[in-house]
Amino acid sequence: MGPDSVPGPAVSWRKVLWERQPFPDNYVDQRFLEELRRNEGIRQYRYWAVVKEAGFVGQQLSCVAIFITLWLYMEQGLLSPEMLLWTSLISGLLGYGLHQVLISQEESSCEPRTRLADLQSATIFLSFTFGFSPVLKTLTESVSTDTVYAMSAVMLLAHLVSFPYAQPSPRGSLSINAALFASVCLASRLPGALHTFAMLSCALLVFALWPCLLQKIREKAPSHFTGVCVGVCIIGVGGLGSQSPGGAILLALALGSVTLLCPLLLVRLQRHKDNIHGPWDEAEIHEDLSRFIH
């Protein structure tokens, strides 16, 4: 049958190729596209739920602001490295205690890390950082300060962009590396080796350990999560405000758009979503097939 042949008698059309049917090749049946499915499995977002999730992004932004504030204080000599080290140590211990409390609530089948192992890695990291801080201090001496600042800015931005907000527990290696690279750059512009050591320990606390703790809070105590995020945001804006009011206003605007405006856009634009599925879609393999090999 070619196109536009005369349609045959009242036989109903079937979607099969193996049967010669009395219809032209370009025949369009009523059942054409009947298997088309639209917006299958779409998630309906609620505004405040999205805002709450966006709080994670906002607080990470504030963390970067807090780190920069601390660095500004150190650079101007308003904050002594001893003071920062003691504060870091105390907040680190407090955070570690809280983390242990939160972990002890879960009945995990696998063997948890022992305190000794934690102490070991902390000692190794701190002693190496302490030992290498004179080297790190002079590392970027031959590089101009502008370049160092630009590099730090780019790296902190990369940290924010590549941060795994959905699942921060095994941290994305790119984001943490970018953050530590930026910290080394900034720390090397501080007056002394002890300053560098204090700054790097602080960076470790802010960029590596704090997201772990926050993720645990999100899982175990969701009611407190929002409060913590708001608190971090206020500290961030306030701290930056004490050094540069303009920067604080920009940060507040950024936080507002990330946590309030963007969720609004997401919820609004959701209604324009038009996703089509049908028998032509490539089938997906949902099973775990690796068990047959390993």
């Binding site: 070619g2 032209p24 090749d25 370009n26 369009v28 054409f32 596209l33 298997e35 089509i276 032509w280």
Partner: peptide, 27 residues
């Protein structure tokens, strides 16, 4: 004119290229 090799392929092509299904034949 467009030719497709099965009815599913015709539905797919008509949707992808926003075509009038009358100018698509299945061979």
């Amino acid at each position: 004119h467009i030719v497709c090799v099965s009815y599913t392929s015709k539905e797919n092509t008509v949707l992808r290229a926003t075509l009038n299904p009358e100018i698509v034949s299945v061979i």
